[in-house]
């Protein structure tokens, strides 16, 4: 019965959920590094979109995946030369 209560209280720390969470994280890494051209094409498209709104310094553009222990973030550093005037 304690086992039963413990199960109710713990809820999500059974090994299946641990497995799912570990898989989720490992696949973010695996998938992002699957094709080396991925970040490059992402950069190109970012430039395309951003250029509609502002003039950016393409040579200074940096896009990286920042990998923490239990999270992954897309970090972009985009130098802006000039913002377009509103019309």
């Amino acid at each position: 019965m304690f086992d039963f209560l413990g199960r109710l209280l713990r809820g999500s720390d059974n090994s299946k959920n641990v497995a799912k969470e570990r898989l989720r994280l490992v696949l973010i890494h695996d998938r992002s590094s699957l094709s080396p051209g991925l970040l490059d094409s992402l950069k190109e498209e970012l430039i395309e979109v951003l250029s509609k709104y502002m003039e950016i310094d393409e040579s200074g553009l940096e896009v990286n995946l920042d990998e923490g222990d239990d999270s992954v973030a897309l970090v972009a550093n985009i130098p802006v030369k000039q913002i377009k005037r509103k019309v």
Binding site: N14, S15, N17, A19, L23, L27
Partner: peptide, 16 residues
């Protein structure tokens, strides 16, 4: 084992 929550279910794997 799936029932006990100690193995990923079919749905888990399809989702992933």
């Amino acid at each position: 084992m799936v029932r006990k929550g100690d193995m990923m279910s079919i749905q888990d794997m399809i989702d992933i």
